[in-house]
Nucleic acid binder design. Structure first.
Lengths: 259, 259
DNA sequence: ATGAATAGTCCCATATAGTGGGACTATGCC
DNA sequence: GGCATAGTCCCACTATATGGGACTATTCAT
């Protein structure tokens, strides 16, 4: 499902090369000497210098001393206040709003920060009781008992996950909360196997939730989206259709957001 | 001295157009419809769409809904932690270090923040007594009694300057500090006329300082650089050579930093 | 709902515009 | 001092971007 290798896109090789060069420079803030870049990108030096010249004129990069490039001041100014989390929320909100409406549920986008889940987007369907679900945007919740948290924990590198599991204690939010590290580990394994997570009243008594990861081109996911329903109204047979919609939304967002 | 209009730079019209487009989009975060951009840039729509496509693939921009573009997530991630002030300091430090050495002085770069001067760079010549001058990087000082502060106040829009002058009181740091708003206004006028500011022991008894603005292509300056000496060792006849060096440095930086 | 207006996509013959080899200078390093 | 690497410049060639126009998708007003 990852690797959304788009077609070659004809008609602007030059721009593409320039932008690829910019990305290389932006990645390590210009630590790599151009000679290396030339080798990596298979371009002659004269071309590279022409490209850097254009990037510099446009203010995207600036030179400091020999061999050292940086992000240009104009670009830094234009992007002041832009954060990865903010952009992620901006880009995902429309699709999540639509998803929430289509499923009559609450849709969330969350990422992991300091072993807690941070909710970046929350969109409630109009049909839900006002104020449904305890979450709020830009607030944090424990990871071990939320759908999004379980998804992100499930794909953590093993060392990280072990550290998290050892870090307890896991406080029970409801009588269904999983508090035993061993059982939590098993749950995470099945999350990875089934490619989705479920929270069946583990965080609040009347909350049922399904969550799936957002894939960033082959990398382990760092963001996940979820659908939440009032648990008392939940029909098990609805799960498959909700999961399908959730996955479709995740696939679309993954492709849209990560080039 | 502003308007460092560089030569046409032949050989990459395509890249230039693409980057110009990106800058337009980055400026207003994609609020402007492409039709308007097409008119502004004198390019046919089909070309613009090809360019946006390339920018999108490279991760610099992303689309959200129709007519709305944003900074792409990959770019936001790559530039996480980059701030205008940080880049400005990075770009200016080498030249300031050299300037400090050449003049046997302390060289500063400062900007205005909340009516105070924030020092972004401080470079002391090795020949100065260790710990010379009270300033430290990333700390603030009153604007009305420092060289850099006077320069930035002098070029403030009149409304802003009037507000600042009305905002007193101006506390005397030494017996030479200018504390009368009317006298301060006159001083600022002469700063603008002479294109440099002097602080003759107004902030500390043994501190003499010359400051000039950095020009960002015709805009009123938002940053300034200065040279500071121990006042007791100051020879009036040295001023002109120091000023010349200071101005040369400012011109070089202005050209280098602002495209 | 229906239609008009605008956004976005695709195609292709043409010549414009980028290419890269190489010769050259500047700069930094030993 | 001299060597190695960074950065600049030039130019004939052809790969490459161009833009007109036909077409579809989406949005908005009525």
């Amino acid at each position: 499902m990852p690797n959304t290798a788009k077609p070659p896109a004809p008609g602007n090789a030059s721009l593409e090369k320039g932008l690829a060069l910019f990305n290389r420079i932006a990645q390590d803030h210009g630590q790599t000497p151009l000679k290396t870049l030339a080798a990596d990108m298979g371009l002659p030096r004269s071309t590279l210098y022409r490209l850097t010249g254009a990037l510099e004129q446009a203010g995207l990069i600036a030179r400091l001393r020999h061999r050292h490039y940086t992000i240009g001041l104009p670009l830094a100014q234009a992007l002041h206040g832009i954060t990865p989390a903010g952009q992620l929320a901006l880009l995902c909100r429309p699709a999540l709003r639509q998803l929430a409406r289509a499923c009559g549920a609450a849709a969330h986008l969350g990422v992991m920060e300091n072993d807690m889940v941070t909710y970046l987007v929350k969109e409630n369907a109009a049909t839900l009781p006002a104020g449904f679900s305890i979450s709020r945007e830009n607030t944090q919740l424990e990871a071990y008992c939320s759908g999004i948290g379980k998804v992100l924990l499930a794909w953590l590198p093993e060392a990280e996950r072990a550290r998290y599991l050892a870090g307890g204690p896991f406080v029970a939010m409801t009588e269904r909360t999983i508090t035993d590290p061993q059982r939590l580990r098993q749950t995470l394994e099945s999350v990875q196997a089934q490619q989705f997570a479920r929270d069946d009243g583990e965080i609040a008594d009347d909350l049922y939730c399904l969550a799936v990861p957002l894939w960033a081109g082959g990398q382990p996911p760092t963001a996940a989206i979820s659908l939440s329903f009032p648990r008392h109204a939940h029909q098990p047979q609805d799960d498959s259709s909700h999961l399908a919609r959730l996955r479709a939304c995740a696939a679309q967002l993954s492709a849209q957001i990560f080039p």
